[in-house]
Design a protein around this nucleic acid. Structure first.
Lengths: 212, 212
DNA sequence: GGAAAATTACGTGTTACCACGTATTTCAGA
DNA sequence: TCTGAAATACGTGGTAACACGTAATTTTCC
């Protein structure tokens, strides 16, 4: 691995974005050694070329950026992974710790931020933009709250997010519907959800990604 | 207006995408006369430079691509507008008829499709990709259901999707909460929603994009 | 083995959502 | 002008969700 010009591969399923990123990196003189149109291509590129840095879209066909990061970790590939996305994935920070994710860029960021990110990551320092950190601030609370839930409570929360009623959940888990109600009540208390009628359903549907 | 090299302006709030599109058009020898980072810039470019074609992102700060199209129509600007987006906006086809939208491109499309689109639009023929049409096919059925709703019913449906309770909706619209309940009931009947407790809320949250 | 946490369950009461019917007013189009 | 659709509103009754308290059983962990 060279300190001066780290090798980079990129992957995105949007041709325009891929072209924009590709052109930009080449113009700036980075050592771009490959690019892929989807998750599988990206994964193959990483395992074969072992680049220093892989800049990956989170949402791609076949494999998501997160799945690739997961695989890389279990295979002890030391490619530093930078994720790039349009959406503000709120629970990403936590996963970034578990996997070997070194950076996180929003696509609406200025191009300069990408350079800073690459520079920082090359030095082995994770890069999360200030704007991300603003989001993270909110998130730590949420995740803290989520972790106060017991396994049963999480299970029920998932089922709620799947539009199940209390009775359906009860029969599915072979417990009384009153128990489900109690769990619901406890969940609401723990998560500090506003006291409105369908607030738990709303919360569950809005945060169901976190429950996977 | 020249038939050989139509003048083009582009606008997107994602720097990478803008660069990708810009580089692409320049490489291919198109007459790109301007680019903007948001809706306001795009609008000013159009009114000042009166390009033959404007390729605009739908979602941008200050003004959306649709709003720009609307303004252009009312001002009788004959710039042909092509919208570009990441999301599959399902009710776009209908609006395209009303406004002077000449094309619609998904960002995941291959670059070649953009060239075809520009070529087609230059000849004055609207371009909607086959993949869009697939979506449209599905949508017409859904829209059929949606269009059976009266204006008031649609308004209430939007508010439901925004997590409002009946009473909140009632006070916001200055009507009785009983009226809201009646509308709800009618909506459920019209949309053939399964008879479960929060089915309408669930439906509204899952289909809220269609309600814009 | 014993304490703490989690899971299970019920009682009681309130509120919101939904069904189905009825009825008045408003408003646009034939 | 008249008719029909839409919007407004209420009555009545049923079910689901939620609050708050209590309590037995099981699991987990030191």
């Amino acid at each position: 691995m060279s300190n001066s010009t780290p090798s980079i591969i990129i992957a995105d399923d949007h041709p325009l974005l891929l072209k924009g990123l590709s052109d930009f990196l080449i113009e700036k003189g980075y050592n771009l050694i490959g690019s892929g149109n989807n998750g599988r291509e990206a994964y193959n590129l990483i395992t074969k070329k072992k680049p220093d840095i892989a800049i990956l879209d989170i949402q791609m066909p076949y494999m998501s950026g997160l799945e690739i990061a997961q695989q890389c970790k279990s295979l002890d590939v030391d490619t530093k992974i930078v994720l790039i996305t349009l959406h503000k994935e709120k629970d990403l920070y936590q996963k970034a710790q578990e996997l070997n994710i070194f950076g996180y860029i929003l696509k609406e960021f200025a191009l300069e931020e990408i350079e800073i990110c690459i520079k920082t990551v090359t030095e082995g320092v994770p890069f999360f933009s200030d704007r991300i950190k603003e989001l993270i601030g909110v998130v730590f609370v949420d995740d803290g709250e989520l972790n106060t839930l017991t396994p049963s409570e999480k299970k029920i929360l998932k089922l709620i997010a799947q539009d199940k009623t209390n009775k359906e959940i009860a029969s599915q888990l072979f417990i009384s519907y009153r128990t489900v109600e109690k769990h619901r009540s406890n969940i609401i208390t723990k998560l500090n959800i506003e006291p409105k009628t369908n607030s738990l359903l709303i919360w569950a549907k809005e945060n169901h990604e976190k429950l996977l």
